[in-house]
Design a protein around this nucleic acid. Structure first.
Length: 308
DNA sequence: CGTTTTTGACCCGCGC
DNA sequence: GCGCGGGTCAAAAACG
């Protein structure tokens, strides 16, 4: 069905961790899941009849079934290129291959071009990705970390550019991508890649008021994006933490909606738990603040069948 | 003056 | 093999 259309519109490189929706109980259900490199994209999700303002998670390969691609594809079809998402196993530390400086061992300092080639690893291992959609007028939402923009590219089939950010912490190779959905301009899709190797610059809890602290560096315009990322090294109190964030998240400007979710320490953990993380009714309620947000239930698709 | 953003160029993977 | 599109680099500009 829509797949053919997608295959044409969606860049093959777009990825999506999964497809979620909010169930009647107010939980966020993962409808589909996909590993990086899969055929579906966030846009695919947006294209769905009922675009979820949810999040997409891309857990470590080790944590997810390989058939995940099927799940994702099911909804939209896998016409696109599903590169073997089964890339090599993800190494425990994703930091190792951050960019040119690290990988290039030694002999590649020949020409500038090669330098730019950044990593010529035979197979680039992708770090776990975590994406979510936020309904907000502000492209950048504070998530407590400091980011530096290192690129911006026009996205095919979208009037909105995609911005690339990297965590400013020296040893942290976490990257983030922010783009506005062409399908729904009011929705911003933020994708995190990797895990922070350091504590959040600002206290996890009431981060909002202090947002100025870091976002101010940039003038608040660029601020940042979204919520907290899963931190393997700095595990957070799962559920309650999640809720706290939702409550505490403030969006400096006019972003009324949004939301966020925090994926606790490890995705795999969640995956295994397969629990539902109910949002407080009040949160999901109407206030507009969280209605767009989401909590979620990650389904570990052990069955690996299609979500149908 | 230090840090971040902007922006064009380059590289790479993939599809045709 | 070529072209397309995504992702990254890095120099210059902008900002505080």
């Amino acid at each position: 069905m829509a797949n053919s259309a997608f295959s044409d519109q969606v860049p093959s490189s777009l990825y999506a961790g999964g497809y979620y929706d909010i169930n009647p109980q107010g939980y966020l259900d993962m409808l589909a899941f996909q590993d990086y490199g899969g055929g579906a994209s966030l846009f695919d999700m947006l294209q769905q009849p009922t675009p979820p303002q949810a999040l997409v998670v891309d857990p470590p390969a080790s944590a997810m079934p390989e058939t995940t691609s099927d799940l994702v594809n099911t909804p939209t079809t896998n016409s696109s290129s599903i590169s073997s998402s089964s890339n090599e196993h993800v190494t425990d530390q994703e930091n190792n291959n951050t960019r040119s400086d690290d990988d290039d061992d030694e002999e590649k300092t020949t020409t500038n071009k090669q330098l730019k080639a950044k990593k010529k690893n035979p197979k680039k291992q992708r770090e776990p990705r975590f994406a979510f959609m936020t309904k907000t007028e502000v492209d950048h939402l504070d998530d407590g970390y400091r980011w530096r923009k290192y690129g911006q590219k026009a996205v095919k089939n979208s009037p909105f550019p995609r911005s690339y950010y990297r965590c400013t912490t020296a040893s942290c190779g976490v990257k983030k991508r922010v783009e506005r959905s062409s399908d729904d301009p009011s929705t911003v899709v933020t994708t995190y890649e990797g895990t922070h190797t350091h504590p959040c610059p600002i206290a996890p809890r009431g981060m909002l008021p202090e947002t100025a602290t870091y976002s101010g560096l940039n003038g608040g315009v660029n601020g940042v994006s979204s919520f907290l990322l899963p931190q393997n090294h700095y595990p957070q109190p799962s559920q309650s933490f999640f809720h706290n964030h939702i409550n505490s998240l403030n969006f400096n400007n006019n972003s009324t909606t949004t939301t966020s979710s925090t994926i606790p320490s490890t995705y795999s953990h969640y995956m295994q738990e397969r629990q539902s993380y109910p949002l407080s009714p009040s949160l999901l309620k109407d206030n507009g603040l969280l209605q767009d947000m989401v909590s979620f239930q990650i389904r570990k698709e052990e069955p690996k069948d299609e979500p149908s």
